[in-house]
């Protein structure tokens, strides 16, 4: 009944938030596979190693939805998007959807996020299964 997507990548430095996202996605029933990254750098490395994960994860890889937290150490959400845009064409994914996650709503952050082609949504935490289902249905 619910729409499905390949897989979803959750990028958040807070372990608790990652867990909340996992619950929400599972309850929404929109995907069979969830990947996790601690920060932007981690996520970028994950995306770059296409061949490695393709072999391991099969058709579930690459993920076509990324839930991206903004405020993270090492490499934050915006830095990740900058780096992602700099990747070679073959390293980038077709029709990738990025949903930005933030604890407190900021118009400046939202405006900044909308400048990236891949960003399709701006969500204030906590994330709910209804919101996930709604977004995946719109794909």
């Amino acid at each position: 009944m619910a729409s499905e997507c390949n897989s979803i990548l959750v990028v958040d430095d807070n372990e608790s938030d990652r867990m909340l996202a996992q619950f929400a996605i599972e309850d929404a029933g929109v995907t069979k596979k969830i990947f996790f990254s601690n920060d932007g750098e981690d996520a970028l490395n994950f995306m770059k190693e296409y061949d490695l994960y393709k072999k391991k994860e099969g058709d579930l890889y690459p993920p076509n939805v990324v839930l991206l937290d903004i405020n993270m150490p090492k490499m934050n959400g915006f830095e990740f998007l900058d780096q992602y845009e700099k990747l070679n064409a073959d390293e980038r994914y077709q029709s990738l959807i990025v949903l930005m996650l933030t604890s407190s709503h900021s118009d400046e952050d939202k405006a900044r996020a909308e400048k990236y082609d891949a960003v399709k949504g701006f969500i204030t935490k906590p994330i709910t299964e209804e919101r996930i289902a709604e977004i995946v249905a719109g794909l």
Partner: peptide
């Protein structure tokens, strides 16, 4: 402050 104070609350 607004972000970091809110983050644990939201969680």
């Amino acid at each position: 402050m607004s972000h970091d104070l809110k983050a644990p609350l939201k969680t």
